[in-house]
Each structure stands twice: as C-alpha cells, then as structure tokens.
C-alpha cells in the first residue's frame, strides 16, 4: 500500500490533483482511493487530501495514515501546520517553495533529517497556466521523485483527465508538469 498526503489551501486544487493521480494510476490496473478533509472549507483554509494505491482492493476507510509521501503545494503551510504529523522514517517530502532545500530545512527545524525535495510549483503554475494553481506541477515533481511512471505516459494520461478544459489550458498544464519534473531538487 502506497499512501500520500497532500497539504494545500482550499482552492489550490489538491482534491483535483489527488483525483487526477488516482485516475492515471487506475489505468495501470492498480486499486486507488482519493479523498480529502473538507470541513466547511472556505477558499484559502488549510486542508489535507489523500491518496492510497494498492495491488488489491482498498478496504481501509480510516482517514488516519502514516504517509509514504507528503506533498505540500502551499509554501506557508510548512510553518502554519504540522506537515510532519504521523510521518515515518522513510516518508518523502516534496514541498513547494522559492527557497533551496537547505534554506527551507533551516527555516523549519521539524524537517531536519528528513528526505526533502523542493520545487516552486506556484511560480511554475503562474508562468505556464497564468494562475497560482500548483496541483498539476506537483504531480510532475512526484513522477520525478517517485519514479512511479515515465513522464510521457503520465502526461498522455493527464491530457485525458483534463480533457474537459480548453486545449490552451491543457497544454499549459502539460508544460507545468514537465517543468516541475525537470526542476524538482
């Protein structure tokens, strides 16, 4: 069982990102689950979303998990929420920030000694999509760090997942995914 926790603000697309990831993973024959903690979420409120991936049907509906990956798509959440809660020794972090990994870890001591990757999904999204929606670039970074799928296979599938959007937006998302894949450190 692979378990992923997203830290986001409502409106940044973590739920769409988690469901998009689940959709792509499902095409490879695996069982998937994507869900979120909403509350009566207001745009901008801190929230978490989750993915589970397994080879057998996923029966577990508890919201609690010890994540294998923690994906943070809003830079400030590193300081205002405990993104390390319930982690384990092997947990891998991919965090959106304009800082280098060293600067980030120095600024948040909780991350010391953990496996941390950084990428500026907000800037990438602004440059490509024109809006600070950092969900799809985070998926590009996840593909690079996890080696889950070849980036071309992943992008082809994401084109299908996003097919309801205008072509221009789909193309911009593909650029965002590729850039985050190339730039994650």
């Amino acid at each position: 069982m692979l378990e992923i926790r997203w830290h986001s603000r409502a409106g940044q697309g973590a739920v769409t990102g988690a469901k998009g990831l689940a959709d792509v993973v499902s095409t490879t024959g695996k069982e998937v689950q994507a869900f979120a903690f909403y509350g009566s979420a207001k745009r901008g409120a801190a929230m978490t979303a989750y993915n589970r991936v397994d080879d057998k049907p996923i029966m577990n509906h508890e919201k609690f998990m010890h994540p294998d990956y923690v994906l943070v798509i809003d830079p400030a959440l590193v300081y205002t929420t405990d993104i390390t809660i319930y982690d384990k020794e092997e947990t891998v972090y991919i965090i959106t920030t304009h800082m280098s990994t060293e600067e980030l870890v120095a600024s948040q001591p909780r991350l010391a000694g953990k496996t941390v990757h950084t990428v500026d999904c907000i800037k990438i999204a602004q440059d490509t999509i024109g809006r600070p929606i950092p969900n799809t670039p985070m998926l590009g970074a996840l593909m690079k760090v996890s080696g889950m799928y070849e980036i071309d296979f992943f992008k082809d599938n994401m084109v299908r997942v996003l097919s309801k959007l205008p072509q221009k937006i789909v193309d911009a998302n593909m650029d965002a995914i590729q850039r985050a894949y190339d730039e994650v450190k």
């Binding site: 469901k19 959709d23 499902s26 998937v32 869900f35 979120a36 509906h61």
Partner: peptide, 12 residues
C-alpha cells in the same frame, strides 16, 4: 452512502 467517506472518495 457515507458522506465524504464514500460521497467524496474517488475509487475505481
């Protein structure tokens, strides 16, 4: 169906 736990949980 269970609110959120089923209604907002995507599965195959």
């Amino acid at each position: 169906q269970d609110g959120f736990m089923t209604s907002h949980t995507a599965q195959g």
